[in-house]
Structures are given as structure tokens and as C-alpha cells.
Design a protein around this nucleic acid. Structure first.
Lengths: 342, 342
DNA sequence: TTCTCTACTGTGAACGCTCACAGCCGAGCC
DNA sequence: GGCTCGGCTGTGAGCGTTCACAGTAGAGAA
């Protein structure tokens, strides 16, 4: 609508501003970049000229010389739906957006759910369109990370990356310790037949939480029984299915550690269907402390992942990398949140 | 991680490729842009040199001269949560992503829920970082659209924009006609006391669907009763509240037209709570034909919004605008989808 | 042979900005 | 007065591309 080909008139450049303000390009540029070494009179004239001409910097020209774009990407390498319905995701995205906003850096959400989209995005990002990438993926070691790092793009991963040849900066909660804390809690309230619904076992989070569970059983002198283990995919439905399965295998179950709040919601439903009271008959512990934990009935006792700190650390590491610093991984502690379910 | 300041070696440029391939910059550039007027031998040498050097174009340099970036934005001007839980949103996003992918254009999702973020994003987009913007907002006439258009950025809006001074390209379903179709259907199955749960009345969609409802009542010789009208905000809960309210006011209600499937889900729950059978006691019609319609019990009879065509048209208009063409608005027809609820 | 035409190639000039440098001016010090 | 020094300013170069243009060589027609 509007704007015909020819009509699209040339946007004012720094030259135009300089001419209108009666100063040189250099002075305009200095005003644009902090205003140091500029006399008040000149600064005033430049600002007036900018308003008058409607000047906006051409970021391409600027980026060409500075090598910076002033933006960052939040890259999802799995199908969007999976994330959008995940309560943790929204918290993380908001946290990262705000942390970057403090540096006046816009965050661009990019979706690369298919291999073809991944190629497109890697090419796009690799050719310099953002200063860095926050990579989100439950299978955190996806080849995308490697490709980006090889292309020289600063990358920080959320979660623990799968083992790869190169070291990858990442920020994660201490999954194993969180699981230990929860299982210890379940034992401390007198439970002995503790089942677990794990996340996918091809993800670090899935593996680590199971490992924590096993460690605590061992330390309490309890036997590890594969019969008490079922696996879900972090969705509510899978939690319900897994819980029903455990209940069928071991009707005498008296506690359940579910590796995500969303799955725990499903598990609560399955327990209710089976006529079990929570926490009286079966104590249930979740993981995440997401909105789902509070919404659940009964409200979930869970392990809090410090999403605010995770997003803050991710942004901190990314900015440091952009500055050319060497960054390392950050593992953050979790915290037990007691509610009604255990 | 890795990449120390000095270590960040200069990326190969088109010069390097030219030197390695033993040709000129011009020839390399031609290979990069379609390969016309390049001899097979030269093309081969250039491609080999690109592989050898690991060359990737610098998009800033390219954009500086072409004025294009090869990317587009999907801009949300309302809080993310609102969209992420909306089943329509995912369909629309996916459709736009795919339509643009056919042109090898990556789509960047930008969130501008707060006024401050809107400023940041408008500045970012206005300074040339994307070729065009697909603007999504229920209150489609938000100032963001005007600002972008004034900054010379191609914009296509999803939905009907509020009245503003400037004409805005947009794509929308024919809300009023869809509403008419649904209400006619409810009357055709013998209902006479038809209530309506509208969307917010400060949005075009909310207003238009109500208008369609009134038109059909008039055409059927029925009186319009404000008592039969309640307003929601497109959320499930608001649908339940509105339906309960209508039921309290008019217990003899025999049909309900709910302006979104999600609200209709809520309405179904409220009707069930009130002991009404659907469709026997009360026929219920939704709007959208989203995933919620199929998931509802009973499955919703609804009005299908052609999201696939909407996204395709949005992209078509945007690309046309980017080419400098004048584009107009597109209104697409809806379709009645009969299921169990009416 | 000469001329034209086509396919291809190289070169200089942008694009709009930042950066380094050099220069200017006036104040303060010797 | 001469010197230094700091604040401020203008200028030229260059970032890595694309684009327009000029130019070359070889094939085919006249």
C-alpha cells in the first residue's frame, strides 16, 4: 500500500544531517555514539537536524564497519508447539528478553524446527545478522550449535549440551542435585516405594534426574528397581500414561518423583483415576516449579529451577563472548519448594 | 568459549575468494548471485575457492548496497503468553514461515508487548534490519503499524486495522459473513433464543461478528435483545463466565454463538455445569475451527477461518510491497464446519 | 577481410557509516 | 612570548559488497 517504486525517496543520511546542522559527518557520528568530544552547541544543532530530517541510522553501514548488529537471537531447534505450550519456555524467553533489553539489545526469536529451516537459519545467522545466539533445545547438543560456533558466532546453550568435540558455553540447573533433594525429601516423609517418571533418556536432563534418584536410593540402602521407572516426554499426557503404567506394575507405590511439573499434572490425574489420594496414599514430587505446579490439584511439591538466574547468566555469558572473552559453563543450584503433594 | 579477541581472525572476503580462484571480484559476485554470464570453468574455480576459504557473504555489505536484507519479521504487539496459548497463532505462524521459506526468506519472530519494547523494535526494524513486517495484533490498528509505515517499512496486518489516517495493507477473514452463516445455521435448526458471546468490542473482530449476528436476527424478524449478549476476551475462562452469565439472565436460551472456539470450550463447560445438554438443550456454535474445536466435547460446529490462505496472502502482499508495488486489502471467505455441537 | 553480436570478464564507483588522524583554538604554565 | 595540553572539529580512508560500464575474444554473417 502507498510507496510506489519511484516514490520511495532516498532516506536522509548522515551527510544530510551534517549539512543541515552545519557541521561535519564526524561530529554527527560522535553525537550518535554517545556525544563525547562534542560541544553543546554542535550537539544541539545535530539533534535539531536529526529531528528535522527524520534521520535514522542505516544499521547495515554501521554494522559493516563495527562488525556488530546490536541484536541477538533466541533460537529454537525443535518444533514450535513443543515450546509454546511449555510453561518454562515463556519464563525463560521473558527473562532473556528483559536481560538483553537492559543493554538495549532486541531479541529475535527464530524457529528452526526442520532440518531445512536449520540450514536457512544457520546461514542467516552465520552471515552476521545477529551478534550472538541463545540456543534452546532439550537435545542441547544438536549440530546447530557446532555449526554456529564454527562460523564464529557467539553461542550460549540453555541446558547441558550433549558431548561434542568442541566446548560449548552453557547454563543449566543442577538437575542431578535437584533430583537428589526431591527423592531425599520423599524418603524423609517416610516413603519407601518411590517410583520415578523420567524425561526422555536421550536428553541430559532426563538422564541426570534419574541418576540423582538412583544415588539417593543407594545412599538410603534401598534397591534400585527398574520396575519403578517409566519414561515420558515432558508432556502432560505422557506423565499420565507413565504413572498409570507404574501403578499397574507396582500397586503398592507410595511416592512418585516426576521429572517435570507438566508430567506431574498428568500423573496426578492418573492417580486420581486409580483412586489414589495425594499425598496420603502416594506422595508426588515434580520438577521445574512452573505455573503448572501451582495450578495442579493438589499443588505440587517440586524442585525450583532458577529461571530468572538462568536467563540472566545466559545473557551475561553471551555478552561476554561478544566482547571476545572466553566463557565457561555455569551450573545453578535448585531449591525444594514444598506444597501439598508431598 | 574459545575465540579469543586477537584470535578472531578476519573472515575471508570476496577478494580472497577472487584471488584464490584467479578471477575478479565481479566474477565471484556473479557466481554468488545466480551465476549468469559466468563461464563453467570460472564458476567451478570460484566454487572451489569458496569451499577452500570457507567464505560466507557479509550480508551487511550486501544489504548496504542492495537495500535488502532477505528477511522478514513476524511482529507481536501484545504479551507473548496471549499468543502462545492461542491455537490460531501457531497455525498462522507456521503458515507464514512456510510461505516465506519458499522464497528462502527467514522469518524473525519479534515480541513487543510493552511500550518500551515497541519503541526498541520499531527503531530496530525502522533502521533497516528486515525487508518487511507481518504485524499480528487483535487490536490491529496499534500505533506500531503507523510508525512502521511512516518509516517506509512494508507492513501487512493480520486482521482488520482500526481506522487510522493512513491506509494499511491487511488480510482478514470475513468476520461478519462468517457470523451470519453461523447464526443462520442456528436458526435453521429451529433455535429462536440465540445468545452470543462476543470478543472484545474494541476489536474489529469482536464488533463485526456481533454485527453479523444482529443482521441475521433482523432478517429473521427476531428482536435483538441486549440481554442475550455477553462479552469475553477470547480466553477459555472468559467464555465460561460469559455463558454462565447469559444462562443466569436467560435460562430459556436454546442456542449460543461464541465468537471463538477457545471461549466456546469454556461455554461448553459452563453449560455442562448448569446441567444443559449440548446440542439437545442448547446448540453451540464456535468460531475459528482451531484445534480447540475438535478437542471440545461435543466437537464444535464452527466457522472455519482459512488460516492457510490468510498466511499465504499476507506473504504475497508483503513480497509485493517489498517489490515496490501498491497493495490493497484482502478479505477471505469463511466456511461453516458442522460437527456435533449444533 | 571486416563487421556484428554474444558470452564473458575486470574495474571503478558507489552504498552510509565509523575510525584514526591531523589540525585548530584557547587556557594555563613556565 | 612560547609551550603544552585538552577539548573540539573536519577529512580521508576503508568496511565488503553490488552495479554499471567498458572491454576482450571468438563465432558467425556479410
Amino acid at each position: 500500500m502507498r510507496v510506489k517504486p519511484g516514490e520511495r525517496r532516498r532516506r536522509p543520511t548522515i551527510h544530510d544531517v551534517a549539512r543541515v546542522a552545519g557541521v561535519s559527518r564526524g561530529t554527527v557520528s560522535r553525537v550518535l555514539n554517545g556525544g563525547h568530544y562534542v560541544s553543546p552547541a554542535a550537539a544541539e544543532a545535530v539533534n535539531a537536524a536529526i529531528r528535522k530530517t527524520g534521520y535514522v541510522v542505516n544499521r547495515h553501514a554501521r554494522s559493516l564497519i563495527t562488525g556488530r548488529t546490536g541484536s541477538a537471537a533466541f533460537l529454537l531447534t525443535e518444533p514450535q508447539e513443543k515450546f509454546f505450550e511449555d510453561p518454562n519456555f515463556n519464563v525463560l524467553l521473558r527473562g532473556c528478553t528483559e536481560a538483553l533489553a537492559a543493554h538495549d539489545i532486541p531479541l529475535l526469536l527464530m524457529l528452526a524446527g526442520t532440518v531445512e529451516e536449520q540450514r536457512r537459519i544457520v546461514r542467516y545467522v552465520g552471515s552476521g545478522h545477529v551478534d550472538g545466539v541463545l540456543l534452546i533445545s532439550s537435545r542441547a547438543g544438536s549440530p546447530v550449535a557446532e555449526q554456529l560456533v564454527k562460523a564464529g558466532v557467539p553461542v550460549v546453550i540453555c541446558g547441558t549440551p550433549q558431548l561434542t568435540g568442541i566446548r560449548l558455553a552453557h547454563v543449566a540447573a543442577d538437575d542431578r542435585d535437584g533430583a537428589r533433594t526431591m527423592v531425599r525429601h520423599l524418603l524423609s516423609v517416610g516413603r519407601r516405594r518411590v517410583g520415578i517418571v523420567t524425561g526422555p533418556l536421550d536428553t541430559p536432563g532426563g538422564v541426570e534426574r534419574l541418576a540423582g534418584y538412583r544415588e539417593v536410593l543407594a545412599e538410603a540402602g534401598l534397591r534400585y528397581e527398574p520396575e519403578l521407572v517409566a519414561t515420558g516426554d515432558y508432556s502432560r499426557d505422557s506423565g499420565a500414561r507413565a504413572a498409570a503404567e507404574l501403578l499397574a506394575r507396582r500397586p503398592d507405590l507410595d511416592a512418585l518423583f516426576v521429572a517435570s511439573d507438566l508430567m506431574a499434572q498428568g500423573a496426578l490425574a492418573a492417580l486420581a483415576d486409580a483412586g489414589r489420594r495425594v499425598p496420603d496414599d502416594v506422595a508426588v514430587g515434580g520438577f521445574d516449579d512452573s505455573a503448572a505446579a501451582v495450578a495442579a490439584r493438589p499443588a505440587l511439591t517440586t524442585v525450583r529451577q532458577p529461571w530468572d538466574r538462568i536467563s540472566a547468566e545466559m545473557v551475561r555469558l553471551l555478552l561476554a563472548q561478544i566482547e571476545g572473552q572466553d566463557t565457561s559453563a555455569v551450573i545453578l543450584p535448585t531449591e525444594l519448594v514444598r506444597r501439598e503433594s508431598a
